[in-house]
Design a binder for these strands. Structure first.
Length: 419
RNA sequence: GUGAAUGUAGCUCAGUAGGUUAGAGCAUCUGGUUGUGGCCCAGAAGGUCGGGAGUUCGAUCCUCCUCAUUCACCCCA
C-alpha cells in the first residue's frame, strides 16, 4: 500500500473496530434493558458545553478542570469531561422537574479528558451515566447500587461494591479541620505527593497508595464517625436498603471522590483485573449541585460506568459475541447471472432477509469460500445452466444438500427463512 | 507533567556475537482438471526492520537524537 501521508488517530483516541463493536452493543443492550426495567428514560446530550458549566460543577481547582479539559479557549466552550453537569443543565433548562418531581434519566456517550493514556483510560472514553434528580431518599441510593449490581451480574462480571459517606456542608468542614490537624502533626512522615495534597485535597491523603502513608493515616479520624445526625441516619438507611435488596458491599472510609460536588453517599464498584484502574463504576450523591447551577433546590444522585473498562473485563474472560449469520449468499456466474442475482438480492433485502453477493466476478470456488467465511446458511447459484432452466441451485451449507429453486425473491425468502 | 519498557509483514512474534536475496504462524489471493465451502497440499502477494544522524569497508543489530505505542505515577470511569 502506498502511503502519501501517514495520518493516525490522536493519542488516546481509539477506533472501535467491527469485531469489538459487537461486544459494545452487547453491553449497551444489556444496560438499556436493565435501565428500562428500573424505569429510567434515555436522554441525549450535546458533547460541547460552555466551559463555565464544568468549572462550576466539577470544581475550579480539580485536575479535570485545571488541566484535563479540551477547551476551545476563544469560544469559551469545552468537550464534556463527564455527563452529570450537562444532564443537570438540560434538567434545569427544560424545567423537567415541573412535569415529574423525580426524574430518572440515563445517557450513554463519549467523554473527553486530556490525560496520559494507560490501560483502561483514554482521552476519548465512553460512559453510561445514570442519574436520579429530585429525591434525597436513601432508598434511591440503594436502589441505584442494586441496579448497577444487577447489570454486573447479568454481564457475568465480578466486582465488589465499596461504600462511604462524605457528609454534607454541615458536617464536612469540621471533619476536614480535624483531619487536617491530624495530618499536620505527621506531615514530615508523608510522601511528597501527600504533602502537596494536604493543601490541595487533604481527603486524598487517605487514599494514597504508598504503604508508609497508609500506615500514617491508619488511625486518622474517620468521616463516618463525624457525620451529623442527618447524614448518619441517611447513611444507615442506605445500608439498610442495600441489605434489604441483598446487595453485598463493604465500607471504605478511605474512599474519596475527585469531583467537588459529591456529598453524603459515595460508592464504587471495583475490580482487581484492570491494572491500575480499579473502578468500573463510581458515583454518589450531589445534593447541592442543582441549586448551584441555577436550578431548584433539589437533591440528586448518580453514577457513571466506563464502557471501555467493561469491554476489557469481558475480553479478559474471552467473552466474544458474533454477528448474526447471513441468510443467503448469492453467486451469480457470468454477466447475466450476476445481473439477475443483483436484482434478486435487493428484492430479498426488502423482504427483510440478510443477504449479500460478490461483485468482483470471482470463481465459483472462491465465492463458495466467501459464503462459508461469512457464515451464510444458504448459497444460491445462478450460472448458465440455471439461466437456461430458469431454476437456481439452493445449497444448505450445513447439510450440503442442494436443490433447484425458482428464481423468485419471495419464494427464496420463504425457503431461506423457513429453517 | 514524571518514570520505565517496547517499536521487524494486515495481526502475533522469531532473527542476526554487525556481513550478501530478513523469516514463521495466522490472515489474504490463486491453484490442486470443465461450475461447489470448511480439513489438507502447493504457490503468490505483502517489509524504506518507526524516522533521522553518527561509528564502521558494511547497521535491522552498536551510539545519540526524535517520533510513536504500552505500562505505571499524578489524577480519574
Amino acid at each position: 500500500m502506498e502511503t502519501v501521508l501517514k495520518i493516525k488517530a490522536l493519542k488516546g483516541f481509539k477506533d472501535i473496530l467491527p469485531d469489538e463493536v459487537i461486544l459494545w452493543k452487547y453491553i449497551e443492550d444489556a444496560a438499556r434493558d436493565i435501565f428500562q426495567r428500573f424505569n429510567f428514560s434515555e436522554i441525549r446530550l450535546p458533547i460541547l458545553e460552555k466551559t463555565d458549566l464544568f468549572a462550576r460543577s466539577i470544581g475550579e481547582a480539580t485536575d479535570i478542570v485545571e488541566k484535563e479539559m479540551y477547551t476551545f479557549v476563544d469560544k469559551q466552550v469545552t468537550m464534556r469531561p463527564e455527563a452529570t453537569a450537562s444532564l443537570i443543565r438540560a434538567y434545569i433548562e427544560h424545567g423537567l422537574y415541573v412535569h415529574k418531581p423525580v426524574q430518572r434519566l440515563f445517557t450513554i456517550g463519549p467523554m473527553f479528558r486530556h490525560e496520559r493514556p494507560q490501560k483502561g483510560r483514554l482521552r476519548q472514553f465512553h460512559q453510561m451515566d445514570i442519574e436520579v434528580l429530585g429525591s434525597e431518599n436513601p432508598l434511591v441510593d440503594a436502589e441505584l447500587m442494586g441496579m448497577a449490581a444487577m447489570l454486573f451480574t447479568e454481564l457475568n462480571i465480578s466486582v465488589s461494591l465499596e461504600l462511604n459517606s462524605l457528609g454534607c456542608p454541615q458536617c464536612r468542614p469540621p471533619y476536614r479541620a480535624r483531619l487536617l490537624s491530624f495530618i499536620e502533626s505527621r506531615l514530615d512522615a508523608l510522601c511528597e505527593d501527600c504533602r502537596r495534597r494536604s493543601t490541595t485535597n487533604p481527603l486524598r491523603i487517605l487514599d494514597c497508595k504508598k504503604d508508609h502513608c497508609r500506615q500514617q493515616v491508619e488511625d486518622a479520624p474517620s468521616v463516618l464517625a463525624h457525620l451529623c445526625p442527618d447524614c448518619d441516619a441517611h447513611f444507615q438507611a442506605v445500608q439498610n436498603g442495600l441489605q434489604h435488596l441483598d446487595v453485598d458491599y463493604s465500607l471504605n472510609k478511605f474512599m474519596v471522590r475527585g469531583l467537588d460536588y459529591y456529598c453524603r453517599t459515595t460508592f464504587e464498584f471495583v475490580t482487581s483485573d484492570l491494572g491500575a484502574q480499579s473502578a468500573v463504576c463510581a458515583g454518589g450523591r450531589y445534593d447541592g449541585l442543582i441549586e448551584k447551577l441555577g436550578g431548584p433546590g433539589k437533591a440528586g444522585i448518580g453514577f457513571a460506568m466506563g464502557i471501555e473498562r467493561l469491554v476489557l473485563l469481558l475480553q479478559q474472560q474471552e467473552k466474544s459475541a458474533a454477528d448474526p449469520d447471513l441468510d443467503l449468499f448469492v453467486i451469480g456466474l457470468g454477466e447475466e447471472g450476476g445481473k439477475l442475482g443483483y436484482g434478486l438480492v435487493h428484492e430479498m433485502r426488502k423482504g427483510r432477509c440478510r443477504v449479500t453477493m460478490d461483485h468482483e466476478g470471482r470463481s465459483l470456488k472462491s465465492q463458495m469460500k466467501q459464503a462459508n467465511k461469512a457464515g451464510s446458511r444458504y448459497v444460491l447459484i445462478i450460472g448458465d445452466n440455471e439461466l437456461a432452466s430458469g431454476k437456481g441451485i439452493l445449497k444448505n451449507m450445513a447439510t450440503q444438500q442442494q436443490q433447484d429453486v425458482e428464481l423468485d425473491s419471495s419464494v427464496l425468502a420463504e425457503r431461506v427463512s423457513a429453517s
